[in-house]
């Protein structure tokens, strides 16, 4: 009997060793093996049945041996089964392999117009600095666009902004600065606002001119506001907008509604100030006009210039867009060719 058990064991081990493929028959082979060696009608069971014929002394020894053989075969069967299922999974995954280089499927989202995208970027920076966003009329009274900004009728500064008139009293605003007046008339300091929007000038359409374009105006009025604060604010803005190493440069200028006034350059964001094609070798790009709000403008809006001071600034969005993306023709921005728009 002992010999029978040993022979059975050896046979089973030999058979189980061959169960290591992943072909379609393997599951059946495994099942057959299980029935053959471990099932109710297996050889082992029939050998066990012979136990009765053994002596009292031999019976537990043989019983022990039979159990050993059984558990070893069970273990080998378990291992073979696990191995086979691994092989089967690997074969399945192999069969399911796809070409990952085929293109993706998706509803392609649209995009923001570059003017809006840059405008949002500017807005976000100033929101972070505690500014509100306000809107103002584009069809505007002459008073708000000019007179209230120290540009009375027949003032030579009117020549620098060729104006579309609706009638003698109403025009299309030439600058977002008109919103300064609306804000100061309606709100007491502290004031911290920006106002983006469309402005209009009677310039024929060409690569660098458009009769309609966009500006962002900024206004801060409070106690003790200094020109240093103006510089600090624009420096923060520029570093956020154009990169943390951006420097700014103030040049004296004249705007009737600010005093002192400045034109503001930022160090070229393409070359960092070394001079390149974008900045025409200057190292600087003019981007802003700014200054301290003129006391007459404050007074006109009912704000006492002895108590309060403020600064204002304005920038053209198209100019920033064109510099930022190296666009050489402004007309592209209004042609709305999606081959252009999809590039941003």
């Amino acid at each position: 009997m002992k010999e029978k058990l040993h022979a059975l064991y050896a046979k089973a081990m030999e058979e189980v060793a061959s169960l290591n493929t992943s072909d379609e028959q393997i599951s059946k082979s495994l099942e057959d093996f299980k029935v053959k060696y471990l099932g109710k009608k297996s050889e082992l069971v029939s050998i066990m049945k012979e136990m009765g014929s053994l002596s009292k002394e031999e019976r537990p020894i043989m019983g022990q041996l039979a159990n050993d053989v059984r558990s070893k075969i069970e273990k080998a069967y378990g291992e073979a089964k696990e191995k086979v299922s691994k092989l089967e999974l690997a074969a399945k995954l192999q069969a399911e392999t796809i070409d990952v280089t085929l293109p993706g499927k998706c509803i392609a989202p649209g995009k923001a117009h570059p003017i809006s995208a840059v405008q949002s970027e500017i807005e976000d920076i100033f929101i972070g600095l505690g500014f509100e966003i306000v809107d103002g009329p584009e069809v505007e009274y002459d008073y708000y666009n000019f007179t209230a900004l120290n540009i009375p009728p027949e003032h030579p500064a009117r020549d620098t902004q060729d104006t579309f008139y609706i009638n003698s009293n109403v025009l299309l605003r030439t600058q977002t600065s008109s919103v300064q007046i609306h804000v100061m008339e309606n709100k007491k300091p502290p004031i911290r606002v920006i106002s983006p929007g469309r402005v209009y000038r009677s310039d024929a359409i060409d690569a660098t001119h458009s009769p309609m374009f966009h500006q962002v105006e900024g206004l801060v009025v409070d106690k003790g506001i200094t020109m240093g604060d103006l510089k600090g604010t624009l420096e923060l803005f520029s570093q956020n907008m154009f990169g943390e190493n951006t420097k700014i440069r103030f040049r004296p200028h004249h705007f009737p509604f600010t005093e002192p006034s400045a034109e503001v350059d930022v160090s070229c964001f393409a070359c960092g100030g070394k001079g390149c094609r974008l900045c025409k070798g200057e190292g600087w790009i003019e981007i802003l006009g700014a200054g301290m709000v003129h006391p007459d403008v404050l007074k006109r809006c009912g704000i006492d210039p002895e108590e309060y001071s403020g600064f204002a600034f304005g920038m053209g969005i198209e100019r920033i867009v064109m510099k930022k993306y190296n666009i050489d023709d402004m007309r592209l921005l209004y042609e709305n060719d999606i081959r252009f728009l999809s590039q941003f």
Binding site: A108, H113, I115, S116, L341, S342
Partner: peptide, 12 residues
Amino acid sequence: GLGLYEIQTYSF
């Protein structure tokens, strides 16, 4: 998100 491109056209 619906796949439309934003554009800017003249007000006049």
